[in-house]
Design a protein around this nucleic acid. Structure first.
Lengths: 338, 338
DNA sequence: GCTGGCACTCGCCCGGGGTGAGTGCCAGGG
DNA sequence: CCCTGGCACTCACCCCGGGCGAGTGCCAGC
C-alpha cells in the first residue's frame, strides 16, 4: 500500500495538473504545497507512483501527469465532493424555478450544468418506463383517424397518430378512453402492457379492430420511447479542451451527436449515487480521453432519468461532482412540484 | 465592368480555393483551367480583381484568396445551383420517408443535411403562426387543473398546464372544448386571438374566470412559441473548418448554442427562394467567417419554416445550395403527406 | 492587349546551438 | 531506514540564419 504522503503527492499532482494543464515537477510541487519534505523525496515518491501506474511522464525529462488509474484513485480515495456554496445553490434554484414546462426544465438544466461545470452537459428526459401514467387521451381528428396522447407524472407528453381500420363512434371512443384511463392512470408504464392485455375483448365486434390498433400503438409508443430522448449543451466548452484539440475534439463531437452512444453512456451509470467514468473506462472509443460524471435524478426517491457532464479527464472532479449532484437534486425537486 | 475573362478567373480562383484551401497562384490557375491565356495575363487580371476588392493575398508573395465580396459575386453571377443527381434524390427521399413523427422528420432532416453538405445543419420546426389549428384539447387532470393541448396541421403538438382559479365541471369543460374548437379549428394561428376574444362572456359567471385563464394561456402559448424551436446537427463537421480553427470554431459553437441567434439568422432569410449570407454579411459577430445558406420549406405552396446550413465562407456554394434546396423540397412533400 | 523574361519578396522548412526544467542516482546525516 | 542536498544528464523548447521556391510586379517586345 502507498504511504499517506505518497497519496498526498498524488493528490497534489492531480490538483496542480488540473489547474495548469502542464506536467508538474517535484520542485514546483514542494513550493505550492507544504508537504514538509524536499523535492528529492518527492521525486522518490513520484518514481514509486509511476511504478504503480498512477502517473506518467510525457517525455523523459518532463514533469508527471496523472494516468486514468491515477485519477481513479484520486476520485475514489482522495477527493470528496465539493459542496456548492449557498449563493450557488440559490442561483441554481432561481434559475430552475422559472421553467414553464418540461422542455424548459430540461433546457435550463442543460444550460445550467454547462455553465457551472464549464463542460458539456447531457440531460436525459424523464424515462417513460419508470414514470407513471397520469392520463391517456384519445382525440378524434377524422372519422377513422385518432390521436393518442400520453401524459406522464413528470409532465412529459407523447403523441401518436392512429389510422383506424374502421370509423369509430364518439360513444365508443369515450368508452374506450374511460376504460383505458381507469386501468392505467396512476400505474407505472412498465405495468401497462399486462393491464390492457384483454381490453379489446370487452368491446363490440365492430370496434375490436380499432381498439386493438389503439392498444398496439400505445404499447409501441412505450417501447419506442424507452430509447429515451436527451438534450445536450455547452459544446462550446470543448474548445477549452486542450492545446492539441483538433484531433481530440472531433471524435467527441461525433460521439455527442450519436444519441445512442450518450444513452448507453448514461445507462452504464449506476442507478443511485454518482458515477464517474474516467478515460478508457468509457466504452466508446471517441471518449477515451474524456471523463463522464453522471447521476440519476427523480421527482421522488427513485431516479427517473440521468444527467451528467462530459469533460476532459483532466477536470476538477470534486467541483464537477458537486455541481452535478446539486443540479440533480434541484431538478428532482422541480419535477416533484409540477 | 469586369471583362468576361476576369470573371472566369475569379470563378477559377473560387473553385480552386474551395478545393485546396490554399491561396491560388497564377501559374497553377492556367494549368488547371484552360483559360487560353498565359500566367502573366492572369496576373494582370488578378491585380484588377484585387483592386476591385474581390480577392486578396494573405501576404505579399502568396496566391490570392477570394474575399467575401468575391464570393458574393460568385454566387450572384457566376455559380448556378448544382442539382442533385438522381441517386442522391432517391436517397434523400428514402431517408426521409422512414420518419414516424414530426420530431423524427426534423431529426432526419438535420442529419441528412449535415451529411450531404458536410456542414452544420439547422432546421426550424414548422412555425405555429403560419400553421393552422387542427385541434385544441382540454384535459382535466385534477378538479382545478387542466392541460391544454394544441395540435397543428403540420403535426406539431404543444401542451401547457393550467391552474384554474375555481373547480371546473366536466360539462363546462366539454362545452368550452367544443366552442373553442368550432371557432379555431382549421384557422391560422395568427387569427386565433381575435377569434376567441369574446368567448369568455358567453359563459356562466362562475366559470368565466377559468375560461379567461384558459384563453390567456392559449394566447400565451401562441406568443411564446412564436419564438420557434429548432434542431441543429453536424457540429462535428466544424472540425473540418480549417487549420487555424481553435479560434475560429469557438464563437461558432457559441453562436450555435444560442437558439435566438440562429432563429434571427434564419429569420433574415427571404421568405421565398434561397438566401446566402456570406461572412460579414451575417449580423452575428461570431459567424463573420461563416456563410449561411437557408431556404424556406412548407407543406403547401407557402413556407412554414426555414432550414439551412452554416459552413466556412470557403464552401462549395453550388453543391451546398443544391443540397439545401433539394432537402427543403422533399421535407415539404413529407409534411404535406402527413 | 497578350506574352515571356526577370528581379524581387517573403513565408516556410530545416538544422544547430543554447537554455532550463526536471530527472535519477548517490553519498551523507538524522 | 528514510530523508536530504548535490550533481550530472537528458531532452523538449526556443531562437536564429540560410536556402528554397512559389508567386508577384514590372517591362519590353510582339
Amino acid at each position: 500500500m502507498l504511504s499517506e504522503r505518497r497519496l498526498e503527492v498524488l493528490r497534489a499532482i492531480v490538483h496542480d495538473y488540473v489547474g495548469t494543464e502542464e506536467p508538474v515537477g517535484s520542485k514546483a510541487l514542494t513550493e505550492r504545497h507544504h508537504l514538509g519534505v524536499s523535492p528529492a523525496t518527492v521525486r522518490n515518491d513520484m518514481a514509486a507512483l509511476e511504478e504503480e501506474g498512477f502517473i506518467a511522464q510525457p517525455h523523459t525529462s518532463a514533469g508527471r501527469i496523472p494516468t486514468d488509474k491515477g485519477y481513479r484513485l484520486f476520485v475514489d480515495k482522495l477527493a470528496g465532493v465539493k459542496p456548492m456554496t449557498a449563493p450557488e445553490r440559490r442561483a441554481i434554484q432561481n434559475f430552475l424555478d422559472g421553467a414553464v414546462d418540461l422542455d424548459d426544465v430540461v433546457g435550463r438544466t442543460v444550460r445550467l450544468l454547462a455553465q457551472l461545470t464549464r463542460q458539456v452537459a447531457v440531460v436525459q428526459y424523464p424515462s417513460l418506463t419508470r414514470s407513471t401514467v397520469r392520463h391517456v387521451e384519445l382525440l378524434s381528428l377524422a372519422p377513422a383517424r385518432l390521436m393518442l396522447v400520453l401524459i406522464t407524472d413528470t409532465g412529459r407528453v407523447e403523441q401518436r397518430m392512429i389510422d383506424c381500420p374502421a370509423p369509430f363512434g364518439e360513444m365508443s371512443l369515450a368508452d374506450l378512453r374511460a376504460r383505458l384511463n381507469s386501468r392505467v392512470a396512476g400505474r407505472r408504464f412498465s405495468d401497462v402492457p399486462q393491464l390492457v392485455q384483454d381490453l379489446a375483448e370487452s368491446f363490440d365486434k365492430d370496434d375490436r379492430g380499432t381498439v386493438a390498433t389503439v392498444l398496439s400503438t400505445l404499447l409501441e409508443t412505450l417501447v419506442e420511447e424507452t430509447e429515451e430522448r436527451l438534450m445536450i449543451g455547452g459544446t462550446a466548452n470543448l474548445t477549452r479542451f486542450g492545446h492539441d484539440f483538433p484531433l481530440m475534439i472531433r471524435p467527441v463531437l461525433e460521439a455527442l451527436e450519436e444519441q445512442v452512444v450518450l444513452l448507453k453512456l448514461l445507462g452504464e451509470a449506476t442507478d443511485s449515487g454518482m458515477t464517474v467514468k474516467i478515460g478508457h473506462e468509457n466504452a466508446h472509443e471517441g471518449l477515451s480521453s474524456t471523463s463522464v460524471v453522471s447521476v440519476g435524478y427523480g421527482s421522488g426517491s427513485e431516479a427517473v432519468a440521468k444527467l451528467g457532464v462530459v469533460g476532459p479527464t483532466r477536470m476538477d472532479y470534486p467541483g464537477t461532482m458537486g455541481a452535478v449532484r446539486a443540479v440533480a437534486r434541484y431538478v428532482g425537486q422541480i419535477l416533484a412540484e409540477s
